[in-house]
Amino acid sequence: MKRFILACAFIAALSASVFAQQSTAFAEKPALVTSIGQSADFEMIKVLLNRAKVPYTADSLVKAEKLDGSAKTLILVVGASSKGLGAAGISAEAELVRTHALLKKAKELKLSIIVMHVGGAARRGAMSDSFIKPCMEVADYAIVVASGDEDGLFTDLAAKAKINLAKVDRISAAGTPLAASFK
């Protein structure tokens, strides 16, 4: 009996840590997923969405002009890759300009915005942080792999923006809170 109570308490605590961050589904389908920083994490999130059966379109370099309201939720896969930026033929400065314009238009269109940072500590640093901050300011929800928040950056930014933050231990665990956020 004691074991059962302990197990229930453990499950309850675990559930609380994962799901208390976003208790109700708020995002509407379909989604538009884009990369902010051109890392390959973008590809990983596409797999997550496929497996969660969330309808979406994907465009790693989508510009503000392309947002027309057909997508109801904007998923930002944040994290800089200098190789990825180079391969995409875009500078970090131009990526930041694209990001700001995209965020402005998304707010005008009243899209839900979900920030995903799934590259962990390896996807942090000055360049990544310069992308993370503006995205977190306007986000409605953020899902991060915990090793990317060891210095508490996401925790602080989420508190300032008064948004819920889901921390997961690895990318494959990000699918559950992501799927749960869609109505």
Partner: peptide, 26 residues
């Protein structure tokens, strides 16, 4: 790269193994 991304998810789920992913720089 989509094949690679799907495989890396399975590696995490099946073996608790996390590998980073990068595309070739063409």
């Amino acid at each position: 790269i989509e094949t690679a991304a799907a495989a890396l998810f399975d590696l995490e789920l099946d073996y608790n193994l996390s590998l980073k992913l990068e595309p070739s720089n063409m």
